[in-house]
Design a binder for these strands. Sequence first.
RNA 1: CGGGGUGUGGCUCAGGUGGCAGAGCGUCGGCUUCGGGAGCCGAAGGUCAGGGGUUCAAGUCCCCUCACCCCGACCA
Length: 570
Amino acid sequence: MRWSKYFWYTSKEDPADAEAPSHKLLIKGGFIKQVSAGIYEFTPPGVRVLRKIENIVRKEMDRSGAQEVLLTVLNPAELWRETGRWDLYGRELFTLKDRNGREYCLGPTHEEEITDLVRSYVNSYRQLPLILYQIQVKFRDEKRPRFGLIRGREFIMKDAYSFDADEMSAMISYESVKFAYHRIFKKLRLDTLMVEASVGTIGGISSHEFVVLTDYGEARVAYCESCGYAANAEIVKLSKSEEEKEEERPLREVATPGTDTIEKLSSYLGVPARKIIKAVLYVVDGKDFVMFMIRGDRNVDENKVEAVLGTENFRLAEDKEVWDLLKTKKGFIGPFNLPPSIKVYWDNSTYGIKNAVIAFNKPDYHYINANPGRDFSYGDFVDVCEVEEGDPCPKCGSSLKVRRGLEVGHIFLLGTRYSEPMRAYYKDPQGQERPIIMGCYGIGISRCISAIVEQYHDEKGIKWPTTVAPFELDIICVNPSDPEQKEMAERLYMLAQEYGIETIYDDRDESPGFKFADADLCGFPYRIVVGKKVKEGKVELQSRHTGERWDVDIDKAVEEVKRLIEEDKK
RNA sequence: CGGGGUGUGGCUCAGGUGGCAGAGCGUCGGCUUCGGGAGCCGAAGGUCAGGGGUUCAAGUCCCCUCACCCCGACCA
């Protein structure tokens, strides 16, 4: 490709609206352009990267025995009503009506539609197992789109679905996709960590996420370096702490004016936060109150709360609700003299605490030296505590590491969550009708682009791995007005194409510095610079990844690049 | 859904106390230049996010709306 004819425009300035390196570099490098929040267009080079990733995914999915389909973007509401998700999915669903008032959504995922497709053809165990997949645009009206392609409202996803006669077979399908995923991420050169993930409220059997460790991820993952345990932080179990061995001091009621946060209370009393028991009050289904007692230095993980409550329909109580209910204000809520309708749970972190600070619904007062058993009773222990660095590994007890992670893949053994309500049944060898066991498997294709850039960049720009680079080779002619240089650059460009190297030839009428800067920004793995040394029969070769540059004989240059590219692709 | 921030040429931004709409980059024309985002000369390019208000006069002050970015989805 001749750059002078190519629809590719980079920018010298950092975009004002971007924060994450991948977001900045993809816009600056002219790979994507924002249309509105979480909605991006791909330019020709952006599409080249996208297609490369798609093709790697496609190849490995095919190799695992999965078959490609293409479902629809417009999903009729009826299908979603069959599973109840028309309402459950909530405001994240983009919905619309046709001219006759018939309702549709823009597919955010395709369990319903694929199940509908499969049930219309599959009747017998002889037709199973089956894995179908597609690569398609998805729509989700995210609460907060961010970081460019990392969390978009419109994005490209590979979604696969497995259909099996029994659980054993379903596990095999699950394992085969898991295996394919490992190969895919290896080919994409993404360092991923496979972590155990939440099976959620829908009663799945098994679930794993593939995450890239980066500060611009939305997930928190915990892992143990000594035993290899790794999980999404929201499912890491924290058990009861050791009982403290301290002499119980006499209970006292003390004035603690204005201490409406743990920090203020802690410094006012000169007591460490870990000796405070705080109350967190939630409203469930808009009417019921549930109180969680947790240690002052710890935070509630609302994902765990969801698991305890069995619903995601809850929120923190507001000031006026606290006042109406307990005649107190936030900061002074405690588990004393409560209306019987309020359910109180104690987080495991509060177990065995001695001489604690605790509020008792009297504004601007706290108890100090409160002790369980003597001054208050506790029970109904649950685990709603957010995991932090250094917490014990649930497997081996060593210290956990906690990092932000970007979820690029998720595999999920669903069971009969969709086949049952949608009556996707097959007949077993005995002629019995049984629901198909399903699994679903996603890879965020467009998100992978960002993940790769997050992992491969420096202050100058992107450093694409050769397997996904928009072009493998950039040929730069330093001074095109020098006929000798110009002719040589043209010749090398032709030759590179004969060698099957994906080449962009920077024949733009720009200064050398301009072209070098673009080459760094756009991240081509290899660069041939045709300059003054043409007279000596040499050109310069550069590697974007190692930063190395060296002179080679003109007739060997393309061959050398070809060899390096082949090496990279292994 | 809360909280904060920002909206001025294609891009990045400047425009005290209200008084002719600005710069750099980019673009177009010309000349020069050619190994790390070149130089000089000339030119085009604006509904100052939108609406309402105050005023002789609003990019600037007030109100409303919208869009985008960031933080939180958070503690008692």
